[in-house]
Amino acid sequence: MDVMTLITNLIQMVVLGFGIYKAVRHMKGKGGSIVLIFFVYAIICYFLCDLYTIATEAIMPNTRIPFGVDAVAEMGECLLMASLLNAIFRENEERLFLETVFSIIYSLAMTALWIAWSGEWTKDILGGFYFGYFIYTVVISLKKSHALSRKLRILLGVLAFAIIAAHSLVFFVPEDYEELVNNLAYVLMFIGIVWLITAAIVYLVKAIRGDSRDEAKKAVAIGFFALIWTMNTLYMSDGVMYYVADFTCSLSLLIIVYDVITLEEKKPKVLVERRARRS
């Protein structure tokens, strides 16, 4: 069994276990809400997915699984996280044409790349659907929360497509330039990670210090964007970079744990008291 896979998965499981503990503790003290219950459900799914990965690596290493329980687990965690975001931002009405088009084109391009790399048509097409849906939800949440200005959102979109373009170029350039283009893609991906994780931490601190629920919503939107960016980088990386991306994914999950708890703490006092009485 690969030691690094074990370590990164264990780190992620510790983070998720901590998230479950924090959320359950919050529910005990101040009562549960649909957002918090969905959050616990989503991270339990994520936790089980990691456990399953470790067990598969230990018991059935190097087994080709075209579509199995692991794919269902990934689908579950993406859809539950997307549902959680829908629950948080369902009240905000916005026009979302550009975001929808971006999500569809990006998901299609990403799925094509996955198929080109792995050759697993069934798993990758299905993965494109649920991951694309998650991307769509995160992108519209970012718009609805007004966490980033229009210019910055366009810049992020351009960066995302530049990464896809760089990865696609690897198939067409002469062998001498392959490594250069590949490294360029990694540089772009990790610029995005550093940018988004820094922004997520800044927004989280602002949300904790402030009283506004809107600030907390912004922090959630940025946190989830950081998560999806790290997840995407993870799926597009290889070797050492894969483990680095996996570690950043755990970091963004930790930020999300605090984001969701902070959002729950910023609830109107009447609601909190009513829930506490009921629980």
Binding site: F38, Y41, A42, I44, C45, L48, C49, L51, Y52, A55, T56, I59, M60, G68, V69, V72, A73, M75, G76, E77, C78, L79, L80, A82, S83, N86, Y133
Partner: peptide, 20 residues
């Protein structure tokens, strides 16, 4: 999506048991 997500937890739990 929430319903499909809800299906994932028992499936992974069952798969984990069968695997172990």
């Amino acid at each position: 999506p929430a319903g499909i997500g809800a299906l994932a937890i028992p499936t992974v739990f069952h798969g984990l048991y069968n695997l172990l």
